[in-house]
Write a protein that binds this DNA or RNA. Structure first.
Length: 764
DNA sequence: CCAGTACTTAGGTTG
DNA sequence: TAAGTACTGG
């Protein structure tokens, strides 16, 4: 036997060697699951499985690429190239392109990003003359997205009494109509949104048995990583594809399920047992990543969750340093303190910048760390947030490319019809869109056949529109012949975008940056076009556009960014590891997020998120929180997160932000020296503070709020900011833990911690 | 049609 | 605070 399996321990090896039949690997944090997947695939290829028959679905494209590189080292280049690996979205986007016509889309369909989707919804709400406060684009899109992820089509939605009632009760009875209109508009524009990529794949596999059969046989071996974060639409795709051979391997960890807001469903793990009763179960419980302190600290917190599959994550690694807890006065100070700590560690010469990560709950928290790091001249990289592809200048140019590939793409059209300015105003565009609705054809069709579809626009506007159409058509004519970079550059130039950005070059650094960004996109296309492999055709711009909508910053990491401090949300840190992790902003209402406090399951997801964050750390994990932070221009005071007090005391150590230790170093001593600045008397029992955020904002006094909560009795009618009118059916707990169970006709009954509730007692 | 200004309102995570 | 929108005068 070759020695490539020698790098695995006993249980890893067993999992990697099992390649036939259904199997599930429950893999604790840091237990080497990527390793198992990698070696398992390599092993299959070594045993003679054709790589062409293997499908591996990963959570990010980066993970797929890295795995592919590692496999390549074992099995060689030509074999690894034939593997199908990637995210659900990118793999099935490609499959949909091949088969688009069968489900009523052009093969060059556009992929609408969230911004595009919201814009479509905004238009619909406006056209239907609906209250844009009740129908906020984000909320509507969320509802549509949830429906699609559960494979509920617009038609099914419109005839589902339960859903309709739900919408009616939340005073949004028009959601169904909006959903229908939204689907129609996307389809007419030849566009799919992110959720369509999964939804339409299901349609394709459901309605075309020959297609299903083809892919069932092609993907004879299927692997799914991060299975705990798949939603119903993804579950069903996998189930269908695996039905013929049942060579299906799923890998996951229920303790790291953090995407339920996106429809992810732990239920999928349970379904797996039902779908494949004779499946093999493997558990990887030995952690190789982190010190004992880190593993035990994380374990002690996650143990509080009720919903979980029992497992014992353990490690042979040394005890290591305790988790350090830091308290700072403000968010700005938090930034400085963390930056200083990193600076000091870096000074020891043992580490490089890439060994450090700052993890936060929300993207906006990055600001104070950026500032502090910049002052100390330390290089950092922010993941997520506003990505390169979301920048205005990039989206503008991409919109020209999109329109060239698919001129019916209305969102791209709206974006660039008057950028750079060519005197085509809002009214003209609005009239075109209205006409498009009444003729039931796309705006582009109208523009191509102005004689056939009269529109109420001025002659001047008409002439300009014709120029525009001519230009886009001339781009389109070159799409399939001209090399990608040449056409891209040509479009950037003749559309006027380059000139527009160049003419403002004098104005300041931001403008210069914009110009450079466009140049960077163009050189990215150049690199893409030059990356052709032997036997491949020349790459065109339309090849480039195929999956540009699915690219993220992490996929395009630049060489100079490789050795930098990483700043990212906990969500995007999933699957990564760092010697030193700084987990910041551990405050009630921020982490756990205020929005998660209403139900146990939401709170448990926050706790899993905390678990994910802590287990990213290899050597040290430092947790910080601020006593107050800026929000919307004013200072809001905050309390330490409950998660801090949930960590087993044996593995934590409170330190003064500027160095000296607050408590004795001994791990076993139950520390409680009250020497924090500003004096926090007790240790972190989530202090029974009744003065909530809201009472401060609304200017209510402490006692007033207390009175209101004390006065609340079973049977009272109340109004809640988010849930509306409700009736109190139960009260329990004391002080800060006082909770009320309230029945809201629109939302069902909820148990709410009074200290966070925004309740108003009704007079009667 | 456009650019500048006043006003409003933000609650979170992502492909 | 900051970003996005609505309004208004040129």
């Amino acid at each position: 036997m070759d020695n490539y399996l020698d790098g695995l321990n006993e249980s890893q090896r067993k999992a990697a060697e099992c390649i036939e039949g259904p199997m599930m690997v429950i893999a604790g944090a840091g237990s080497g699951k990527t390793r198992v997947l990698t070696y398992r695939i390599a092993h299959m290829v070594k045993l003679g499985v054709d790589p062409f028959n293997i499908l591996a679905l990963t959570f990010t494209n980066k993970a797929a690429r890295e795995m592919n590189e590692r496999i390549q080292k074992i099995v060689g280049d030509s074999d690894s190239r034939n593997l199908t690996m990637g995210t659900f979205h990118s793999v099935f986007a490609r499959i949909l392109r091949y088969n688009a016509e069968r489900i009523g889309y052009p093969s060059n369909f556009t992929i609408y990003d969230t911004q595009d989707s919201k814009s479509v919804i905004k238009d619909i709400v406006k056209e239907f003359n609906l209250d844009d406060k009740a129908y906020k684009p984000g909320m509507v899109l969320g509802r549509i997205s949830a429906a699609k992820n559960n494979l509920i089509s617009a038609e099914a939605y419109a005839t589902n009494e339960e859903i309709l009632l739900e919408d009616k009760q939340s005073r949004r009875p028009e959601l169904s109509r909006i959903y229908t209109a939204y689907v129609n508009r996307c389809q007419r524009a030849g566009a799919m949104d992110f959720d369509d990529l999964l939804f339409q794949t299901n349609v394709l596999l459901r309605d075309f048995p020959d297609v299903l059969q083809y892919y069932q046989h092609k993907f004879r071996y299927i692997l799914v990583d991060e299975y705990q974060d798949t939603n119903y639409a993804q579950y069903l795709i996998v189930k269908k594809l695996a039905a013929a051979y049942e060579n299906i391997c799923v890998v996951g960890d229920d303790a790291q399920s953090i995407y339920s807001f996106r429809g992810a469903n732990i239920q999928n793990i349970l379904n797996f047992k039902k779908d494949y009763p004779d499946f093999k179960l493997f558990k990887l419980e030995q952690n190789y990543r982190s010190t004992k302190s880190i593993v035990e600290a994380a374990n002690s917190v996650i143990a509080r969750n009720k919903d979980q599959i029992k497992k014992e994550v353990w490690t042979e690694n040394e005890l290591g340093k305790p988790i350090v807890i830091l308290r700072t006065l403000t968010d700005n100070e938090e930034g400085k303190v963390i930056a200083n700590r990193i600076f000091d560690l870096k000074q020891t010469g043992e580490y490089t910048y890439k060994d450090f990560a700052i993890l936060y709950r929300t993207n906006k928290q990055s600001r104070s760390f950026e500032e502090a790091l910049r002052k100390l001249n330390m290089p950092y990289k922010i993941y997520g947030g506003l990505s390169f592809y979301q920048r205005k200048e990039i989206k503008d140019l991409l919109a020209y490319f999109r329109l060239t590939a698919n001129p019916h793409d209305l969102e791209a059209f709206k974006r660039v019809i008057n950028y750079p300015r060519r005197g085509i105003g809002k009214t003209t565009v609005e009239n075109l869109i209205i006409a498009s609705s009444s003729y039931n054809v796309t705006v582009w069709t109208i523009l191509e056949n102005m004689a056939q579809y009269p529109v109420n626009i001025s002659a001047a506007a008409k002439a300009k529109l014709i120029d525009f159409v001519t230009m886009i058509k001339s781009f389109g004519a070159q799409l399939e012949q001209t090399p990608a970079y040449d056409l891209a550059h040509h479009i950037a130039k003749s559309s006027g975008i380059l000139k527009e950005l160049h003419s403002e070059k004098e104005k300041g650094p931001e403008e210069v940056e914009r110009y450079q960004n466009v140049e960077e996109l163009l050189s990215g296309i150049k690199a893409f076009a030059e990356s052709i492999e032997e036997g491949e055709d020349q790459k065109t711009l339309s090849d480039f556009m195929l999956d540009v909508a699915l690219l993220t910053d992490a996929d395009q990491e630049k060489e100079e960014d490789k050795n930098k401090i990483s700043l990212m949300t906990i969500h995007s840190s999933k699957g990564l590891e760092f010697p030193h992790v700084f987990l910041v902003g551990l405050e009630e209402n921020l982490f756990p997020s205020q929005m998660s406090l209403n139900t146990r399951s939401e709170l448990e997801e926050e706790r899993r998120l905390f678990y994910v964050a802590v287990t990213r750390a290899e050597e040290s994990c430092t947790i910080s929180y601020a006593a107050s932070r800026f929000a919307w221009g004013n200072l809001i005071s905050s309390e330490p997160s409950r998660f801090i007090s949930e960590i087993n005391d044996d593995f934590i150590q409170h330190e003064h932000p500027y160095g000296e230790k607050v408590s004795s170093r001994s791990l076993s001593s139950k520390i409680s020296e009250p020497t924090f600045q500003g004096g926090l008397n007790k240790r972190f029992s989530p202090a029974p503070k009744l003065r909530s955020l809201d009472s401060i904002k609304s200017g209510k006094t402490n006692s007033r709020v207390q009175e209101e909560h004390a006065a609340l009795k079973v049977g009272y009618n109340v109004i809640h900011d988010r849930f509306g009118k409700g009736k109190v059916i139960e009260i329990n707990g004391e002080g800060s833990d006082k909770k009320a169970t309230i029945f809201f006709p629109k939302e069902g009954s909820k148990t709410i911690l009074l200290r966070f509730a925004k309740l108003q007692i009704l007079e009667d």
